[in-house]
Structure formats: structure tokens, C-alpha cells
Write a protein that binds this DNA or RNA. Structure first.
Lengths: 192, 192
DNA sequence: TGCATGTATATCGGTTCGATATATTTTAAC
DNA sequence: GTTAAAATATATCGAACCGATATACATGCA
């Protein structure tokens, strides 16, 4: 999925500005499985407007910089539909500096490894808390219930995966720390 | 982690050519949490050699193109160690076209959603089988036991996460399919 | 024989990221 | 009450990165 398609997807949830789209990928509903930076979003929106897939109305607000609100056109909906159904999706791409570091645990100090693992556990915990909070709020206030069935299912997927990751790290925290410091990075021990 | 650091990490497991490094990120030990393309690897290795972090010996083979085998220098080991311990690692980045598609399940056909979900279940199953096969082989033949303790822990992490992902999709397959086709992409239903 | 797959290096265009610039308002702290 | 920080908002630029492709020979297998 390129940035243009990703922007169409964001706009399928309702009209939005470039800034608001960015937030959807930072904090919002797409945060855990898609990303887009300003440097990609703004040119993408310009291109989409040129191609007639979105319209742009400029809201000249007092007390704020101008806000350009984008909205899907019928042609934009078609385009999104095509993109979603075009082919069996490619494999997920995961980049985890944490796992890269932990892969080399033996070459590193136990206290450093402890910090990395603990930071990651905290991170997962805060994500899980955030998701749970979201679920609870929707249960309490049906008015706030904006997520569709499939959006809840996707969120449930994320929850299940983060839960597994969290639990595994908690269970194996001490094993990681025990593995640390068993080798030095002077290369003399490298297997060849 | 930039491509240079990633290449240093790959070479920490032993000397290798650019092609072999690529394979480590496609199939091998790093496959599930790091990526690097040829277009990044070859320039990175050239740069690393210029900076004295790796050495390169050209193996002129008969019956094969020349093979450039790279190996870490002591300075390269230092550099890798610095990179691993420099700061608390940034957040994981996940891009999943599958989840992006499933997020919009309501707008799509049930049979298409079934194909996407089933393909993903198969995919997870084959990954899990591969990991299990790897674990079994190491248990049977201690000679093949090349993974260190932390490398096994990282693999265990992957296994736990993929298992959770697989199980969730199996459990919720029918719910996804039931959610499909509830809306059309003509935009008239979009909440604004 | 022919064709796909595997081994191996390399490059090029296009996409994307990350940081930064600019400017104003709201919130928080002291 | 003032000042600092964070949020709102658009935009750009260089560096990094990906994906596809070119080249070339070997191997396997139908």
C-alpha cells in the first residue's frame, strides 16, 4: 500500500486534513499496522486532488492556520475499492530494533538488557491499557461507539498479539538477563 | 537501525557475501524483524569497507561469479556494540496490508475476505511449522545447534506472537466473513 | 532441449522517512 | 502573571531505502 492508498483509506472514515490524517497513523485507528509521514502525506494529497480522487476545501479559520479539509469523491471510493481488492496482500513487514538488540544479548551487559526488556514490557502494557480503555468506553457510552464490527475485530487482533508479546517478555525477562554478558564483541569468539 | 548497522549485525554471525546477507533477511534468522534490499546492502558494504569496519576478500571461483566475502574488523565490532547500546530502541514499525484490507471488511465481498483471511492463516501456519521444524532439528542433532540462548529466546518471541495471530484469525474467521458486504463504497454512508 | 530456479553482483528511478521551518494558540507550570 | 511547552497546521528537502531490473552462468528436471 502506497501513501496515496493509505490516505484514501483514512479519508474513508470521514473528511480530514493532512494533519489529522497524520494523527490517525500516529495515535489513531491505523497506528499499529500502517505509517505515513508528513513528507509523504502532503504530496500524496496534492496528487490525489489533481487526479480528482479527493476534493479540498480550505477552511480559513480565525485564530488558526488555514485548514485544508480533504474528502473522497466517488472516483476516490472506486479507487480505494480497487486497491483493496486488487491482489492477495503482500507479507507484513516488521522492523523491530528491540528484537535486533535482543538477538545479540550475549554480547551486551545484563543491566542494559534489563532496561531494554523492561522498557518494552512497559510499552506493551501501555498499549494494552489504551486498547482496553477504548473498549470499556465504547461499552459504557454507546454514543462513542464509532468502530465498526471489522474495526473491532482488527483491534482485537492487535490486542491478542500485543498480549502474547507482553506475556512472553514477562515470562522470559530473567532468561534474557541471564544470557547477557556471555560473549565479548572482540570477534575472537565469532564462529567461522 | 540503518542498513549499515544491520549488515554489521549479519556479519557478526560470521563472514558472508552480500547475497548471503540478503538471504538472512529474507529467509534466515533476521527475517521476521528486519529487512534489507540489495539496493541498500551493496552500497552499505562498500561504505563499510571504505570506513574500515569490514574487510573484503574476493573469492574467484570457477563456475560461479566472483564472490566477495565480507568480515568484521575489530573496529566493526566496536561500531556494532555502540549501535546496539546507544539508546533505548525506537518503537517497532509494522506495515500490514492484510490488516489494512480487513479494517475495511464491511466495504468488501465476503468471498474476497474469506480468501484474504484464509491466505493469512496458511501463511502463519507455514511460518509456525518452519519454526517448529527448526526447533525439532536442533533438539535431534546437537551438531546443528547453532542458535545461541538469546537467539532462541527471540525466536520463541516470534513463535508466541505468530501463534497468537494464527489462533485469533482461526477463531474469528467467520466473524470477519459475517461483517463483509454490509456497506458500499459509494460514500453515501460515510459518517461525517 | 528448454525453461525455471538458484547463485552472485550491481545500479537506477521512484518512494518514503525524518528533521526542520514557520506561525499561532492553548495548556501547564512556576 | 509570565513564560515555557505542547498542540494545531502546512510544507519542503536531503538522505535513506525499496523494488525492479540487468547481467551471467549453473543446476535441476520435465
Amino acid at each position: 500500500m502506497d501513501t496515496k492508498t493509505i490516505c484514501l483509506g483514512a479519508l474513508a472514515l470521514g473528511e480530514a486534513s493532512g494533519y489529522e490524517i497524520r494523527k490517525m497513523f500516529e495515535d489513531g485507528p491505523f497506528a499499529h499496522f500502517a505509517q505515513a509521514a508528513y513528507g509523504s502525506i502532503y504530496p500524496a494529497l496534492t496528487k490525489l486532488a489533481e487526479d480528482g480522487l479527493v476534493t479540498c476545501k480550505s477552511e480559513t479559520q480565525e485564530k488558526r492556520p488555514d485548514k485544508k479539509v480533504y474528502r473522497l469523491t466517488p472516483s476516490g471510493w472506486d479507487h480505494l475499492e480497487q486497491a483493496l481488492q486488487s491482489k492477495i496482500p503482500s507479507e507484513d513487514k516488521v522492523r523491530s530494533d528491540t528484537l535486533f538488540i535482543l538477538f545479540f544479548t550475549e554480547w551486551q551487559r545484563p543491566d542494559w538488557i534489563a532496561r531494554v526488556v523492561d522498557a518494552r514490557i512497559d510499552h506493551y502494557r501501555s498499549i494494552l491499557d489504551g486498547m482496553q480503555h477504548c473498549i470499556d468506553r465504547e461499552a459504557a457510552e454507546p454514543a462513542h461507539n464509532c468502530a465498526s464490527a471489522s474495526q473491532k475485530l482488527v483491534r482485537g487482533f492487535g490486542h491478542a498479539v500485543y498480549r502474547a508479546a507482553h506475556d512472553y517478555l514477562v515470562e522470559n525477562r530473567d532468561a534474557f538477563i541471564a544470557a547477557a554478558g556471555q560473549r565479548r564483541t572482540d570477534g575472537r569468539e565469532a564462529a567461522e
